[in-house]
């Protein structure tokens, strides 16, 4: 029983990380209508940036915030200078651009930081929770993921900028007709997604070690999470992430074994896509004409 509970708690902790990456995917999808296959690699790259800052002697908290800021600017620049040119390109071209970014980030990270695994610190590693059920870092992950969700919810619900971004996601042409500078809003969406990804990277690195390939597996779980929750729904991404995290842990421990855990994600992806493409919370707009 304790074992089962332990698996569930662990699942929730990793699930929170999947949820954060899935949030980044959803953010990107909502602002551009595309699924960013390079999201995981961008997150990995941001995490290396954080590692470098910490290695230079910056305190964790400062490095965390600086990394988020750098990722934000980087994401915006990427949209302005690369993605922007493919705004009206056919889907295959856009997918190829994402693949190019995937390869590019992966290679540049390997080139700068080398293939050797690096330790990434957790700010709470010295604390004990007083129970074997949940570690301090798991609690930290949960708290950060929860705080981020609230922040994003507030941003989209209550700020003018958030309203603009939702408008652009909903109808780009009408957005221009009310005077919104759509291209900047898209860049903003990219920046935001990149920052969210950076947070996810910094949360997961203490659990996996830092390495250029650290995100490839996690990306698959994040896909599953985003799709399960509904690829356009931020709360859906969170629920999807937690469900996928727990399912992965329980099925891995009791049913399919650790070797097939990734296939669980694959099966979720395919099943959701085929039977419920809008996911759990994805919006089905009622339109009357």
């Amino acid at each position: 029983m304790d074992q089962l509970l332990h698996q569930v708690v662990n699942g929730l902790a990793t699930g929170a990380i999947y949820a954060v990456i899935a949030l980044a995917l959803v953010m990107n999808f909502n602002s551009t209508g595309h699924i960013n296959f390079a999201q995981g690699e961008m997150a990995m790259f941001s995490t290396y940036v954080a590692w470098t800052l910490i290695a230079m002697g910056m305190p964790y908290g400062v490095a965390f915030l600086v990394t988020v800021a750098i990722s934000f600017v980087g994401g915006m620049l990427l949209e302005r200078f690369v993605l922007h040119r493919f705004r009206n390109a056919p889907l295959l071209s856009v997918v190829v651009v994402f693949i190019a970014l995937f390869l590019g980030f992966n290679a540049v990270a390997g080139w700068i930081w080398g293939p050797v695994l690096k330790d990434f610190p957790s700010p709470v590693s010295s604390y004990k929770t007083g129970t074997s059920l949940v570690g301090a870092h798991e609690l930290f992950v949960g708290a950060v993921a929860g705080a981020m969700l609230l922040l994003l919810y507030g941003f989209f619900r209550f700020t003018t900028l958030g309203l603009k971004m939702r408008a652009v996601a909903c109808n780009p042409t009408s957005s221009r007709l009310v005077g919104i500078r759509v291209s900047w809003t898209l860049a903003l969406g990219w920046g935001l997604a990149a920052s969210i990804g950076a947070v996810a990277g910094m949360l997961i690195a203490p659990l996996t070690f830092l390495d250029p390939h650290m995100m490839t597996g996690i990306l698959l779980y994040a896909f599953a999470a985003a799709l399960l929750g509904g690829v356009d729904s931020p709360p859906g991404a969170v629920i999807g992430g937690l469900v996928v995290g727990v399912a992965e842990n329980l099925l891995g421990a009791y049913v399919v074994g650790a070797e097939l855990k990734m296939s669980v994600a694959l099966v979720i992806v395919v099943l959701v896509l085929v039977y419920r493409p809008q996911g759990i919370l994805g919006r089905v707009t009622v339109r009357r004409v």
Binding site: R166, C170, V178, G179, I180
Partner: peptide, 26 residues
């Protein structure tokens, strides 16, 4: 210059109030 496009161009997934706020967003 305000344009009411063909097909009305409402933000279908947003509320009426949000649509109106967007109209005056500038």
């Amino acid at each position: 210059i305000a344009h009411v496009p063909e097909g009305r161009g409402t933000f279908a997934e947003l509320t009426v109030e949000e649509n109106l706020r967007l109209g005056g967003i500038i």
